[in-house]
Every structure is written in structure tokens, then in C-alpha cells.
Amino acid sequence: MTNDQQILDSLKDPSTKELAFRHLISTYKERLYWHIRKIVMNHDDTDDVLQNSFIKIWNGIDSFRGESSLFTWLYRIATNESITFLNQRKRKMMSSLTDENEYLIENLESDTYFDGDEWQMLLQKAIAILPEKQRLVFNMKYFDEIKYEEMSEILGTSVGALKASYHHAVKKVEEYVKSHETRIDP
């Protein structure tokens, strides 16, 4: 029996549900945190989205049928929560005439929990200006090294489309980095 299966069995028993959920949080908190952080960029926003994701998971655990792996289901919820969060921000920003990409770059520059050097900042900015889907795919493939098949289940997109998105994302990041890299002092 896998660890996930043990967690799921314990979650179905009301007497062990809370303990099992604590175990689930402990197992997945860091992976989900870093997944969300790469999407929303800023720590405070990530904290909000992560908590909301776990609350959604708690509320929806009884409806989880095990058709996909627990990991995939959790990633899907965290991804959806992150996108919902960014869309809400986008709606609020309509009045201030800034778009989601600008918001992400501002978030990145104002984040006190960013320890990267100039080149890493440049790379993150290049990722921030990608369209939403390409940004998701790039992060999941490049940093998390998630397989296309798993990504396909999480994002509900075909493997072919994911490969295409990644290809375009890599090209755009490369162009952005090349055009801005000369401005960075060696």
C-alpha cells in the first residue's frame, strides 16, 4: 500500500481524518508551496494561495475518487487556486491600467524573499512576461521536471500542446535573456 493510499484511507475515517490531513500537509506543503510560488512569485501571495488550496483540499477530499494520483489532484487544485488568484488581481488591476505580467514583475521586484542574483532576476522576469499557460508549462518542466504525461493530467491539456507551449516558452525566454543580458555587468 502506498503512502498516498494510507493517507486517503485515514482521511475517509472521521476519527483519523484530522491526523491524516496533518500528514498530508506535512508531505506536500513544500512541493505545493514552490509550485505556487513560481506562479504568483511573491511569498505573501503564495502563503494565501497555499492556505486556500489546503482548505479546498480538506473540503473536497470526500469527493476525490482516486481517478488520478493524489499528487496530481493536489497540484491541480493548487494550480487552479493560483490562476484564480491572478485572475482576481487582473480584474482589480483593470482600473490601474496594468496587466498581469507587470503585476508579476512588480511582485518579483518588491519580494523581500528573493535572494537571486541579477541573472536570476532576469530569468524570472523573462518567465513573468510569458503567457499564462506557457509560464505554467515552463516552470513545471524546467524547474520541477514534471513529466508531460503528469502535466497533462494536472493542466488538462494534451501532451502535444504542452510540448508546443514549452517550445515557444523556451524561445521567448531565450530571446528575452539575450536581449537584456548585455545590460548585466559580468
Partner: peptide, 8 residues
């Protein structure tokens, strides 16, 4: 590919 982000 070092993660440039950190947490409190």
C-alpha cells in the same frame, strides 16, 4: 537552476 526564492 538554483532556486532564487526563499521563505521566512
Amino acid at each position: 537552476k538554483t532556486n532564487p526564492f526563499r521563505t521566512p
